[in-house]
Amino acid sequence: MADAAEPAGLDALFDPMAGEWTRVSPALATLRRLTGALPLAVVAIACGVTAALLPAWQWLPALGAVILAGCAVWAWRWAETNRRSWGYAENAEDLLITSGVWFRRLVAVPYGRMQFVDVQAGPLHRLFGVATVTLHTASTETAATIPGVPADEAHRLRNRLTELGETRGAGV
């Protein structure tokens, strides 16, 4: 059945209609490694040390250390592949957002349907100079969130989207 799928067509399946994706900041991967992979690695090392010090039952913390180290490596690599999968494109009438490596997603939000735009940045995000931009429509399914947008770009995007939303807004 594999021949039924068209490899050429599938590669283009999640491409924007025109132009290129604007990718999110590489700092997002660093940030996620710091908050995801690093704590896992620290706990893994702690487990390893416990295993070395323990007189008996060493295999238990050792097993934990191996599993946690595996998770840490996976999280480390995931942070970068996932970061690469995020992208957005400003079309004439709508904003496109793509994400996901295994579960790929492409969502288009017409400017006129936007209710409001959120820009969020926690202390760590601010340290790395990135922010999360969220577009809200009347539908909760829209879930149009772009993480890791450089702070300046995030504000430009918010202002631009709000402006476009106001000129095209049709209300609910």
Partner: peptide, 21 residues
């Protein structure tokens, strides 16, 4: 159409295997 809020296209690994979305 004028009440459509947004449009989504998605595909999981199994769907990719079957060539569907």
């Amino acid at each position: 159409h004028r009440k459509t809020q947004s449009v989504e296209l998605r595909q999981g690994p199994l769907q990719r295997w079957r060539g569907v979305a």
